[in-house]
Computed example of a mutant assay.
Amino acid sequence: MDVNLKRVNQAVHFEGSSSSSNIKVHIDGSPEIGGEGLGVRPMELVLMALGSCSVLDLISILKKQRQDIQDVQIEISGNRTDTIPKVFTDIHLKFFIEGNQVSLEKAEKAAELAVKKYCSVHDMLAAGGVEITYEIIVS
């Protein structure tokens, strides 16, 4: 796996790309270091990576369980230390699953597998001491 970061302007705005796709991701620093709000911040990308890694597996597992999923959204919140490096201490994922007669029990089992067994981002963060919790809301 290879990625590239290209500086876009004289500030701290970068465009990230992957060797496996043509998709671009804009990354920017905080205003304190010259960021201009032109992209997501690196630690936000970490939360997005955890959420997307988990939800892709969650959807796959729910489909295998023959659950009729109409929509899935995730809210992810993380707390960081006050000292540098400001690493995450804990992260909470909140999955909102909409569908037709989706079983909460099956969704909870699927989330357990998706987050804690199949998501490599979870394992990397947890190995670093980050406490990761989640909850499922089915409607």
Rank of each mutant, 00 (worst) to 15 (best):
Y118S: 04
D68C: 00
A107K: 00
V72H: 05
K109I: 06
G129R: 03
H122M: 07
S52R: 00
V102M: 14
K63P: 06
K6M: 03
D90C: 03
K63R: 06
M124S: 08
F14I: 11
T89K: 13
S52L: 05
S54M: 07
H26I: 02
R7W: 01
Q101L: 08
D68R: 07
Q101C: 11
T83R: 14
Q10Y: 04
K6D: 06
I84T: 13
I84H: 15
E112P: 03
K117N: 11
D28T: 15
S77V: 13
L113D: 10
Q10I: 00
I91S: 06
Q65M: 10
D90P: 02
I74D: 01
E135P: 01
V115E: 10
V115D: 06
I74F: 02
S77D: 11
L50M: 04
A107R: 00
P85H: 13
D82T: 13
E105A: 06
I136V: 14
I59P: 00
S19C: 11
P42K: 06
I91K: 05
S18K: 05
F14D: 07
K86C: 12
G34P: 12
S18T: 12
P31S: 15
N22Y: 12
V72T: 11
Y134R: 00
L38P: 10
G37P: 06
Y134T: 00
I33C: 10
R80I: 14
E135V: 02
H92M: 07
I137T: 11
F88L: 13
E32F: 12
Q73H: 10
S54A: 04
Y118C: 06
L125F: 08
E105Q: 07
H13V: 04
D71Y: 01
S54K: 04
T81W: 08
A11M: 09
A11L: 07
L93E: 06
A110E: 02
K86Q: 15
E105F: 05
A114Q: 07
Q101T: 10
I27T: 09
L45S: 15
M1P: 03
E98Q: 15
G39D: 15
V55P: 01
D28A: 14
S103R: 03
E36T: 15
L93C: 12
Q67V: 03
F96D: 01
V115S: 03
K109M: 09
A49R: 01
C53W: 08
Q70V: 06
S17K: 06
N100V: 12
L47T: 03
R41C: 05
R7E: 08
E44P: 02
M48D: 09
C53R: 05
S52N: 10
